[in-house]
Design a protein around this nucleic acid. Structure first.
Lengths: 148, 148
DNA sequence: AACATTGGTTCTATAATAAAACCAAATAGC
DNA sequence: GCTATTTGGTTTTATTATAGAACCAATGTT
């Protein structure tokens, strides 16, 4: 009984989770955002088994979230970089980071913070905006199922 | 070799993923946001195996994302409701929905959309704000590792 | 040239998941 | 009030995924 796939579901959340992949994949992307590019970078940071890492990286490359590039910097070891598709997951990272900062924080505090470089201060919570571009009051949030 | 836990990592993203749980858990929460409350609601919507659903629900309740309540409405079947901790994952849902709406959308279109009820129109992308509350330019985004 | 590091692959053991069968309690239909 | 159905599970079994270790060739370092 193989693991069920979300890939044929219509819901964008399910499809996104399927595309990102399970577990480790998200942390691999996190490290990519933090500057990791090499197989060893990810392995060291995550303490992940090499075969698992290898499979995850392949999946992320196949799904277009990372690219595996041979650099013109002299080295023959490839580097993994976020694609545009991968980079656009940044708001998801921020949303989870902010949630975790409130509800899942380590006793020693978080390992990193997302800041406004101009002021070196934390950024405020991600803002839900209404169709007018102004902050969206909670009672105005709605979910509309597809009509078809 | 049991599955590695993220629970003792310091990173808030890792800790959040651990707390939410694997795979299905996120879709269970999605359905909770969409109004599902009963075991059967989740089962029908997800097509999930009952034992897996049972385990996931227990985990989500144990981790404080859902509460299992006996309702005063006459029924003796319990209902699952999002706690405040669970409800505050809404921005994460929105972020993934918006990403998926761009990068993982089904050929028939998304199954639902998040709207501004006042206008019945889609909401714009979640906004990253700077410490001044104004939109944060990309070059001002920084990540600061913990000093200690 | 010798040694260490990198980026894997292969193999085995264990844990997680799916599917199906089963069941008691609750609810609905008559 | 009696019967049938639905609900909310648990148990059992089969399969898949993951972790860990050992191994290896290519690369990079001294």
């Amino acid at each position: 009984m193989k693991q069920k796939s979300f890939a044929d579901m219509r819901c964008s959340i399910a499809r996104s989770l399927e595309m990102i992949g399970p577990w480790w994949s998200f942390l691999i992307l996190r490290d990519a955002f933090m500057g990791a590019t090499r197989f060893k970078d990810f392995e060291r940071s995550l303490g992940i088994a090499k075969n698992t890492l290898s499979n995850r990286l392949k999946l992320l490359v196949d799904n277009g979230l990372l690219s595996k590039d041979v650099e013109p910097d002299g080295s023959k070891y490839a580097k993994y970089h976020l694609t545009e598709k991968g980079r656009e997951l940044f708001p998801v990272m921020v949303a989870i980071t902010q949630w975790g900062g409130k509800w899942a924080v380590h006793e020693d505090g978080p390992s990193f913070e997302i800041i406004d470089k101009r002021t070196n201060r934390n950024i405020p919570p991600l803002a839900l905006l209404g169709s007018d571009g102004q902050p969206l009051p909670e009672e105005a949030i709605g979910v509309k199922p597809a009509s078809t």
